[in-house]
Design a binder for these strands. Structure first.
Lengths: 161, 161
DNA sequence: TTCGTATCTACAACCGTTGTAGATAAACAA
DNA sequence: TTGTTTATCTACAACGGTTGTAGATACGAA
């Protein structure tokens, strides 16, 4: 994601107006590695601009996604998460307990459909989601499902969150 | 997923009762490779048992998922999809245009977090989602976003569905 | 400063999913 | 078969994330 100043220019250049609310959201996203939900961005932004509405947050996040400045992703935590990191190729690791999401900077050059297995699909991209438990949740207590599943195909997290 | 008869036994063995509605759902799921949504299962089941309710479909799908007979997955199409195929290790390919989901039977032994990049996560599984256009959507017309993104990290589909 | 228009907030609607309550039917024993 | 217990059923409303609408507000070019 560009800096708040660059985003300001970009918004003006694309015919969008720049408001205090939007700049606040730019600042909130800047350097955020938590892949916040719209609600989380809303909470953070409200600490600066008290009267900002959730709708404005959604609107601005969708604008940023449309401009390619952030990425919206759905990793099965029940709500869309937003990732300001679009410059580096990366994947994601998700805590199945608390829903925490972090970037994984690793290149997997072998992730490619074997010839003939594409079912007629014209594949353009591949995402990998690693699921497990974050350090905090491991420390917090023994999860009943914590046994190692040795990289099998997995289900969603424990029904929601 | 087990056969409808085996599921009937399994439901009884786990203290669940077997009803016409549930057996209908078993039959609907049997051999289904479309990864139907609850709504889709509902539509199909209603052709057999006209008075079945959507709630019952959700209930039964959740029961089956709890028993490990189906897998619920969220691939960013806006609703939970259900996969009766839990026996083989596989991944998924998703059409970014129409939301079609299909299984990909390919083993990727190299999908493993490099040492030190796990961020403290205790990773148990990895899922790969390939995104692109299905044959029908390719044939149906030129998608404005159809240019090859050469396996970069991708976003969700075009905002929903 | 003025004006046109995009954006704002507030509010309600939307949609997928789940909780609740009373009616119904499966399962098992007699 | 009949009765009894108890899970499941349907209908309906609620829930939570997200989006549409309308009138008020403020950006930004002149």
């Amino acid at each position: 994601m560009k800096t708040p100043d660059e985003l300001t220019q970009l918004f003006r250049a694309t015919g969008r107006k720049v408001t205090a609310q939007r700049q606040c959201i730019f600042r909130v996203l800047q350097g955020d590695v938590t892949h916040p939900s719209a609600e989380a961005v809303f909470e953070a932004a409200r600490r600066d601009v008290e009267t900002i509405s959730l709708k404005t947050v959604y609107q601005t996040l969708n604008d940023l996604a449309e401009l390619g400045e952030i990425t919206s992703l759905d990793v099965g935590t029940g709500m869309t998460r937003f990732d300001p990191n679009v410059d580096d190729t990366h994947h994601h690791v998700v805590c199945r307990q608390c829903g925490k999401v972090r970037d994984v900077y690793a290149d997997f050059p072998d992730i490619r459909l074997p010839d003939g297995s594409d079912l007629g699909f014209q594949v353009g991209s591949a995402e990998i989601v690693f699921r497990g438990l974050c350090a905090e949740c491991v420390a917090a207590g023994t999860d009943p499902v914590a046994r190692d599943q040795t990289l099998a195909v997995s289900t969603n997290g424990p029904s929601g969150q």
